[in-house]
Lab assay of single mutants.
Amino acid sequence: MADQLTEEQIAEFKEAFSLFDKDGDGTITTKELGTVMRSLGQNPTEAELQDMINEVDADGNGTIDFPEFLTMMARKMKDTDSEEEIREAFRVFDKDGNGYISAAELRHVMTNLGEKLTDEEVDEMIREADIDGDGQVNYEEFVQMMTAK
């Protein structure tokens, strides 16, 4: 299944994987998964984290390695993001709930994920998604960005 991913997608997933893999040992533990999910405003229980890991832990060693992570991402993409997942993601970014993602809100979430971005990089990300040019990202623009192939 992971063989249907483009090189660009694999590179993006590698970057995402390293955000989860806090200690850089090449595997994601339940603790690391929990840290990232909490930084995104989720509050999973230990059991939920274990279930999430077990779902993709092909070799049964209790952690997720990069090939397992790729399989999980490929699977998720095949079920292409349901509207509800996209709306949920939008809410994570839209901290003040005004229906727009500002540069400050984007920077806040990315920083929580451990991504240190310059102001230019954040502005560039907003510009790429900002179709109507108002300097922020509304829900429609967010959907376009998330579903762009």
Rank of each mutant, 00 (worst) to 15 (best):
S18Q: 10
S18K: 06
K78Y: 10
T111G: 05
E84V: 13
L106C: 03
D21F: 15
F17R: 00
G99K: 15
M77E: 03
N61D: 11
D81Q: 03
K149E: 11
M125F: 05
G60N: 14
I131Y: 11
D134K: 00
V122P: 00
D79F: 09
F69W: 03
D59E: 13
L5E: 08
I131G: 06
L19W: 14
Y100C: 11
D59A: 13
A129Y: 03
D3G: 11
N43W: 04
E121D: 12
D65M: 10
L49K: 02
Q136N: 08
D57W: 14
G26D: 11
A47F: 02
G133P: 01
I10G: 03
G62M: 09
I28M: 15
K116I: 13
A2S: 11
I131Q: 07
G41M: 15
D65I: 06
D132F: 14
D79L: 09
V137M: 15
T71V: 06
Q136W: 01
K78R: 13
E32M: 03
V109P: 05
M77T: 12
D51Y: 10
F69V: 09
K149S: 07
I10R: 03
G34F: 05
N54V: 04
L113M: 01
T6P: 13
E15A: 07
L33I: 10
K149C: 08
L106W: 12
T63E: 03
F17I: 11
N54E: 04
R75C: 02
Q50N: 08
E46I: 14
G24V: 12
G26Q: 06
I86Q: 04
E85H: 04
A58Y: 08
R127F: 05
E55R: 14
E48I: 08
R91W: 03
Q42M: 02
G24K: 12
K116H: 15
G24F: 10
E48A: 03
E124V: 12
L40D: 05
A47H: 10
E8C: 08
Q144L: 14
T35V: 02
D134M: 09
E141A: 02
Q42A: 01
K76S: 08
N61M: 03
I86E: 04
N112W: 05
A74V: 12
S102T: 06
N138L: 02
V109A: 12
E48M: 15
F142C: 02
G99T: 04
V109Y: 03
E32Y: 01
E55P: 15
V143S: 02
N54T: 04
G62W: 07
K95M: 03
D23W: 07
D132Y: 08
E32R: 01
M110N: 02
L40F: 02
V36A: 12
M125S: 04
K31R: 12
T27G: 12
I53H: 15
K31P: 01
D130K: 01
R107S: 03
T30D: 04
K116T: 14
M52N: 15
F69M: 00
E88W: 14
V143A: 12
G60L: 05
G41H: 02
L117T: 02
V122D: 06
E15G: 12
I28Y: 11
D59T: 15
V137D: 03
G135C: 12
L33P: 10
G60P: 05
L117D: 01
D3H: 06
D96A: 00
L106R: 00
F20G: 05
E115N: 07
D132M: 05
E83L: 11
E7L: 06
L19D: 06
R127Q: 07
T6E: 08
D81M: 06
G60C: 13
Q144V: 07
A129N: 02
E124D: 07
A148F: 15
A89H: 04
V56K: 15
T30L: 07
T147M: 11
E55N: 08
E48P: 00
Q4M: 06
T147W: 07
A47V: 11
E124G: 12
A58P: 15
K14D: 13
G26K: 09
Y139M: 04
D59S: 08
R75S: 11
F13M: 00
G114S: 00
A16F: 06
E124N: 12
I126Y: 11
E120C: 12
D21A: 03
D25E: 08
T45K: 13
F93G: 06
F142M: 11
L33Q: 00
E128P: 03
R107N: 00
K95I: 04
E140R: 02
E55L: 02
E105T: 15
G34V: 04
A16V: 12
D123S: 11
R127E: 01
K149H: 08
A2D: 14
F142L: 06
L117M: 00
T35P: 10
E121C: 00
K22A: 14
I86K: 05
A74Q: 04
L49W: 10
L5S: 14
M1D: 09
F69E: 05
E32W: 09
P67N: 02
V143M: 14
Q136V: 04
M146G: 14
F17M: 00
Y139V: 01
T29Y: 04
Q50S: 08
Q136S: 04
R75H: 08
R127P: 01
L117G: 07
G114C: 03
G133H: 06
E8S: 09
G41V: 10
M110P: 03
D134A: 05
K76H: 10
L70E: 00
E115M: 14
F93L: 12
Q136H: 09
P44R: 08
L33A: 14
G135R: 10
F90S: 02
D25A: 14
M1L: 10
D132V: 09
T29Q: 08
Q42D: 01
N61A: 14
L19Q: 13
P67L: 12
D81T: 09
Y100V: 04
T45C: 02
G24H: 06
S39Y: 15
T111S: 08
I10V: 11
E124T: 15
K22P: 00
